[in-house]
Amino acid sequence: MVKKQVRRRKRRKSKQALIGYLFLSPVFLFYSIFLVFPIGFSLYLSFHRWNMLTPPLKARYMGMKHFTYLLIQDETFLIVLKNTLFYALGTVFIGMILALIVALAFSRTKYSSIWRFVYFAPVVTPPVAIGMIWGYLYRPTDGLINTVLRWFYLPGQQWLSSPAQALPSIMITGMWAGVGFTMLIFIAGLKGIPEMYYDAARIDGANFWQAFWHITLPLLKPTILFVLVTGMIGAWQVFDLVFMMSSGGIDTGVVPFESVGVVALHMYQTAFRYMRMGRASAMAFILFLVVLAFTLIELRVLRRGGVESY
């Protein structure tokens, strides 16, 4: 009797599990098609030579050749890795400081929701549109930025047409585009800090800076960690802005690829210009490992400072 009940309960449970899996199956299917399969296929390609035009299963096996080529022989890959690191560190760290300043200002400003909307607007604007608009702003001859500089008798700059200024110019745009999102996260983090700490500090005679250094910043550490990790992951993969804003200079030879190229752009060119999908896939996996290593380092460093929740 008991055995029968146990069996029935088991059957009911497995039936429930089956129904659960059935409900989940569209999601599994979606992820299998759009995530698992592409990752698996890229991994397969990274060990093969494939030009997109022949059946992939007939691709020639290359072993670790793509990886060794990229890490030892391909000077451009190492240069674009360096450029990407420069871009990621610059946009994330400077962008984070700017976003924190803005968040602090808005947490004490009237009508802050309007300002938040203004700062958040670039986040919902497509990067392609941002790239095009900033491309116009940066035009050396008739761009708005140089026009404003000239009003103040400052020399106009070459911006995207200068090998030295092109990447920093794109970084400025990247920061502008991302500051709104980071700001919102910081505002949420600031709201999570109990007001009583500040009250207590004020009673003890602490000024704004003391309260900031000893209360706000330490309690914002989980938020900073989140912003840093997600920001760096995004910045390592930057493509659209760089593609939109650098292609004019690269196409005409005005700006050498090496001075503005990032890993994703090099990957794109390797895949679609030189028809080396295998090497481009290997690049993607190296980038993945680099991002993973950086993320683990960031987590370890910040956890040492007392952040345990991530």
């Binding site: 292609s247 196409d251 679609f272 210009r273």
Partner: peptide, 10 residues
């Protein structure tokens, strides 16, 4: 664009 022409074909 010239840069993307081959990619477009492929």
């Amino acid at each position: 664009s010239f840069e993307n022409y081959l990619q477009k074909i492929l």
